[in-house]
Deep mutational scan, measured.
Amino acid sequence: MAAGGDHGSPDSYRSPLASRYASPEMCFVFSDRYKFRTWRQLWLWLAEAEQTLGLPITDEQIQEMKSNLENIDFKMAAEEEKRLRHDVMAHVHTFGHCCPKAAGIIHLGATSCYVGDNTDLIILRNALDLLLPKLARVISRLADFAKERASLPTLGFTHFQPAQLTTVGKRCCLWIQDLCMDLQNLKRVRDDLRFRGVKGTTGTQASFLQLFEGDDHKVEQLDKMVTEKAGFKRAFIITGQTYTRKVDIEVLSVLASLGASVHKICTDIRLLANLKEMEEPFEKQQIGSSAMPYKRNPMRSERCCSLARHLMTLVMDPLQTASVQWFERTLDDSANRRICLAEAFLTADTILNTLQNISEGLVVYPKVIERRIRQELPFMATENIIMAMVKAGGSRQDCHEKIRVLSQQAASVVKQEGGDNDLIERIQVDAYFSPIHSQLDHLLDPSSFTGRASQQVQRFLEEEVYPLLKPYESVMKVKAELCL
Rank of each mutant, 00 (worst) to 15 (best):
Q320D: 03
R141K: 11
P366T: 00
M299Q: 10
Q61C: 13
L346K: 04
L186W: 07
E250R: 13
K391Y: 03
M76Y: 13
G393P: 09
L53F: 05
D182V: 06
T242M: 06
C304I: 02
A392W: 08
S112H: 10
A230Q: 02
P100T: 09
R372S: 13
M65W: 00
D215A: 07
E376K: 01
A206W: 14
E370C: 00
T382S: 13
V478W: 15
E473D: 15
A103W: 06
A47F: 10
D191S: 12
C98E: 01
K199A: 06
R452H: 14
S434D: 11
S67I: 09
R338W: 08
V324L: 06
Y114L: 13
I358C: 03
Q51T: 08
S334N: 14
G231C: 04
D317L: 15
Y365F: 11
N353T: 02
A163E: 00
R338A: 01
D32Q: 06
T202L: 03
Q210I: 07
S301H: 03
Q428F: 10
K170S: 02
E213G: 10
H263T: 10
T167H: 15
G451R: 13
N68E: 11
E250G: 10
P153A: 04
L406K: 12
Q177H: 11
C173D: 10
I139R: 02
Q210W: 00
T354L: 09
F433P: 06
D430C: 07
W175M: 02
I238W: 14
A77W: 14
R234V: 13
G169Y: 09
T167G: 00
L331I: 00
Q221H: 11
R296E: 11
A392E: 15
L53D: 06
V478E: 07
M476H: 14
L46K: 07
R374K: 02
T167S: 00
L121D: 08
R459Q: 12
C98I: 10
D332Q: 01
L46A: 06
I386R: 08
R20M: 13
E60R: 07
L255D: 06
V262P: 03
D192W: 03
D268L: 07
A308F: 05
L255F: 14
T350R: 09
G96Q: 07
R85N: 05
L443H: 00
C27T: 15
S9W: 14
K264I: 04
V413K: 15
D215K: 15
S9Y: 10
H93I: 13
L222S: 11
L362Q: 00
V251S: 05
Q408C: 15
A78K: 11
T330P: 11
L484N: 12
L468M: 15
H263N: 12
T167R: 04
A206P: 14
F160I: 07
I386F: 13
K82R: 04
L443D: 00
M316I: 07
E425A: 11
E473K: 12
R270F: 01
P467D: 01
I287L: 06
T204S: 04
A410E: 02
P24M: 12
F433G: 03
T201L: 01
V115E: 06
L258W: 05
H91Q: 08
A431E: 15
I237C: 14
A291G: 09
Q285C: 03
N118E: 05
W39F: 09
S15V: 12
V465F: 04
Y432E: 01
G109A: 05
T38K: 15
K295P: 13
R459P: 10
E81M: 00
D420Q: 06
P133Y: 06
D73V: 03
R338Y: 09
R190G: 06
K264Q: 14
G156P: 03
G231Q: 03
G393E: 09
E81D: 13
F345L: 11
S151L: 01
P153C: 02
I139S: 14
E80G: 07
F36S: 00
D441H: 00
L55D: 06
R329I: 15
A260D: 02
K101S: 02
G451L: 05
V413Y: 11
V324H: 00
L275V: 11
E463C: 04
S290V: 09
A260S: 15
Q41T: 02
E328S: 08
E50S: 07
K199W: 07
Y114M: 13
C304F: 13
L362V: 09
M476I: 02
M389L: 15
Y294T: 09
L252I: 04
N118L: 01
G96D: 03
L406M: 06
K479C: 00
Q241F: 00
G169E: 02
K229L: 05
H7R: 07
E481S: 09
R270I: 04
M389D: 10
V457C: 14
R188F: 10
K479H: 09
M389T: 00
E328H: 02
Q241S: 02
T227D: 02
D215G: 12
R194Y: 05
G8H: 14
Q285H: 00
L174V: 04
D182S: 08
Q416E: 10
A388D: 06
L209W: 08
L362M: 14
P133H: 09
R329D: 04
M316H: 04
A388Q: 06
F460P: 09
T267A: 09
P378C: 12
A453M: 11
V364W: 11
G288D: 13
Q41M: 09
K264P: 08
G104L: 06
L461Y: 01
E481I: 03
G288K: 02
I265Y: 10
L258A: 13
D317A: 01
V465R: 15
S261T: 12
H107K: 01
D248I: 09
D349L: 05
R396H: 05
G5M: 14
T244S: 10
A348R: 08
D117E: 04
S15L: 08
I424Q: 02
I403S: 04
L186H: 08
S447D: 07
L152M: 11
S306V: 11
R303N: 15
N357D: 13
V363T: 05
C304Q: 00
S434L: 12
Q184A: 11
D144H: 07
D59Q: 07
I358W: 02
R245V: 08
G200P: 02
D215Q: 11
R188W: 01
S395M: 11
K233S: 05
K367V: 10
K229G: 05
L319D: 15
E401V: 10
R426M: 00
P293D: 06
T239F: 15
H263D: 00
K276M: 04
M278R: 05
R85T: 05
D120A: 03
T201N: 10
R396Q: 15
M380F: 11
T330L: 01
Y294I: 10
V429S: 15
R85K: 13
C172D: 10
V247L: 08
S395A: 10
F282V: 15
D87A: 11
T227G: 03
E228C: 01
M278S: 06
C266P: 15
K284G: 12
R190D: 13
H310S: 06
S31K: 05
